[in-house]
């Protein structure tokens, strides 16, 4: 732990000072600003629309954060050989990777807390303007949704670490991470579709079903983290579900990071 900390700190500092962060934050603020305009126009179900937009804005900005800052932190080390100075210290390759990951988790947590705060303020103002539509609105659910989004990003970041442990360019890591994100997001729907194709009147070959089922167990099921609907409608989420999501994130990240470490241990930096 004593050795992980210095790496985590410099990773965090390097990330938080990155100019892309300003761009991403600005984009998030613009989306939240647009929320005022849009919720002023819909004039019905304002709370649902406003919550949905605010949460989507946050998760989208968070994804940009992981893709453009998170991946870069790792990739630049390999591309530009900054890793030489780290590996010249009494630090093993696994410790390096884990320290780096802790730094990225720190970065995601801090940025998401900040963005969530802005989103909450925007919701508060909209609520103030349209009090009648916010009867079933629950702060708890909105907060939980922010939390789940953060967990999802931490999981996606772990995947990006796995990819960068075996790819040779950061571009490939970037592409693989996006693909995994898209698959992870749609997996639930696709699985439901191919397992009961008659409901929409299509036929699916058994091979496809097998492939989708295999993918279901390999890729993270990211739609589990999406509780925008519940948050928008003020529906409750059971405590066991929350515990399950936290456990899922932890177990999945640990497995992925272990694999990344095993690959990274054999890696050369010529």
């Amino acid at each position: 732990m004593q050795l992980l900390w210095p790496i985590a700190i410099i990773t965090f500092k390097e990330g938080i000072r990155n100019r892309s962060i300003y761009g991403i934050s600005l984009l998030a603020l613009l989306m939240l600003l647009a929320n005022f305009v849009i919720s002023g126009m819909v004039a019905q179900e304002v709370s649902k629309v406003a919550v949905d937009i605010a949460l989507s804005a946050i998760s989208f900005s968070g994804l940009l954060l992981v893709l453009f800052v998170g991946i870069n932190l790792m990739a630049k080390d390999l591309d530009r050989k900054t890793i030489y100075m780290v590996m010249a210290k009494p630090i093993s390759r696994s410790q390096y990777l884990i320290g780096k990951y802790i730094g990225v988790i720190l970065l995601i947590t801090v940025c998401m807390s900040l963005l969530s705060f802005f989103a909450a303020v925007s919701l508060l103002l909209i609520k103030f303007g349209h009090p009648t539509f916010f009867q079933r609105f629950s702060w708890l659910m909105v907060g939980l949704s922010f939390f789940f989004t953060t967990l999802m990003l931490i999981l996606v970041a772990a995947l990006s670490f796995l990819f960068s442990s075996f790819t040779s360019t950061s571009f490939l890591t970037f592409i693989l991470t996006i693909i995994s994100y898209i698959i992870g997001m749609s997996l639930n729907d696709v699985k439901a579709l191919v397992e009961a194709p008659q409901s929409v009147g299509i036929t699916v070959s058994p091979v496809t079903v097998k492939i989708v089922q295999a993918a279901y167990y390999v890729f993270p099921n990211l739609s589990l983290f999406d509780i925008k609907l519940q948050a928008a409608h003020g529906l409750p989420v059971p405590v066991t579900y929350v515990i399950g999501i936290v456990a899922y994130t932890m177990v999945y990240s640990v497995i992925v990071m272990t694999m990344a470490c095993l690959i990274f241990r054999k890696k050369e930096f010529p």
């Binding site: 900390w5 390097e14 900054t82």
Partner: peptide
């Protein structure tokens, strides 16, 4: 080549700390 946004002081802090 070292980190872009770190200062020399922070770089040496890292070196010493690790």
């Amino acid at each position: 080549y070292f980190y872009d946004y770190l200062t020399a002081e922070e770089l040496l802090w890292f070196g010493g700390k690790s």
